[in-house]
């Protein structure tokens, strides 16, 4: 690359590195909820994107309320709204599990069809409630703009925020799954439902809470994405394929696999789109994923899953 000064190239390298990491945290945050639902429970939740949209609309709703009634609290509403996003998505997930999913555990492929129907309904509900147009939440100032460590380098604040959130959420999920009583029960149920039931685990309750938690995390992801992407009735459909790819590529039941796969895909895509055009970079990334999946069908990292 002739004609560029060394400091130019250096700052681009830094920012490019950051945008790779930023994409990594986006993918990770998207995939975590599904990694729990699909990876641990084997439920193909096609409405996962719509649960993200719930989170996004929650932020929008809170921002409008705060702007109108408590303008002084604008810097702080986002924190409350994220908790609300989790709670609302969790509750709806809980309800969906009770009404729909629990009848279908023995037919995992059917969950795909039922949740597809659910996603259509949810999209239409968003449209009826918030209108067909896209909306935009007013973000607090601390989430806007960039951090300039040197005059040439801009690190996006919203990217930093998404990154921080994905680290927090990942840590919490890992702690819960591997260090808590609940996590133990979840893993036991995953590995052998009948035995888990036999030793006195209420597998139905575990299922319900696991599903709802996955949905809640999707809500958090959607809430974070309002800072970097669009909020509209069909926004969720932009994410669903990428989300599934990350989870499958990582090896479905392995949380570590999900992290590794999000990292690999993000870096590949970020670097490729820098050197090729945006569209070609995406295609090459997807093709590479498919080829690797054909060679390693069970994903990058696998652990035992019930079949």
């Amino acid at each position: 690359m002739g004609g560029y000064s060394l400091s130019d190239l250096w700052s681009i390298l830094v920012m490019q590195g950051f945008s790779g990491l930023s994409l990594f945290s986006v993918l990770l945050l998207m995939a975590l909820g599904l990694a729990i639902i699909f990876g641990q429970m084997g439920v193909i939740n096609m409405a996962h994107g719509e649960f993200m949209t719930i989170g996004a609309y929650t932020i929008y709703f809170f921002s409008k309320i705060t702007e109108k009634y408590f303008p002084g609290l604008m810097p702080f509403y986002f924190v409350v709204a994220i908790i609300a996003a989790f709670s609302i998505a969790f509750l709806i997930g809980y309800l969906v599990e009770y009404v729909l999913i629990r009848h279908l555990y023995k037919r995992p492929l059917d969950t795909l069809l039922a949740t597809w129907g659910l996603s259509l309904i949810m999209q239409q509900i968003f449209r009826s409630m918030f209108g067909a147009r896209e909306v935009s939440a007013t973000l607090p100032n601390w989430l806007m703009g960039s951090w300039k460590p040197t005059p040439d380098i801009d690190i996006p604040l919203n990217g930093l925020f998404v990154m921080a959130m994905s680290i927090v959420v990942t840590l919490v999920v890992v702690l819960f799954l591997y260090r808590s009583n609940w996590g133990l029960k979840v893993r036991a149920t995953t590995q052998n439902r009948i035995m888990a039931g036999a030793v006195g685990i209420n597998t139905r309750k575990i299922d319900r809470i696991t599903f709802a938690t996955g949905c809640g995390i999707a809500g958090i992801a959607g809430a974070c994405f309002t800072t970097i992407a669009s909020t509209g009735p069909t926004s969720g459909s932009l994410y669903i394929v990428d989300t599934f790819l990350v989870v499958v590529f990582g090896g479905s039941a392995s949380l570590f696999g999900t992290v590794a796969s999000a990292f690999t895909i993000a870096q590949a895509q970020s670097i490729l789109t820098f050197f090729m055009t945006n569209a070609m970079g995406k295609v090459v990334t997807l093709l590479a994923i498919i080829i690797i999946l054909m060679m390693r069908p069970e994903g990058l990292f696998t652990s035992k899953v019930r079949k």
């Binding site: 193909i44 995992p108 492929l109 599934f244 790819l245 499958v248 999946l293 069908p297 069970e298 994903g299």
Partner: peptide
């Protein structure tokens, strides 16, 4: 390679996504 079940479904889905991007591009 004995890929089956849900994996196969998701992979075919990815192929569909890629082909769409290719055809459109």
């Amino acid at each position: 390679r004995r890929v089956g079940g849900v994996y196969f479904s998701i992979i075919t889905q990815a192929i569909a996504a890629i082909l769409t991007i290719l055809v459109v591009g």
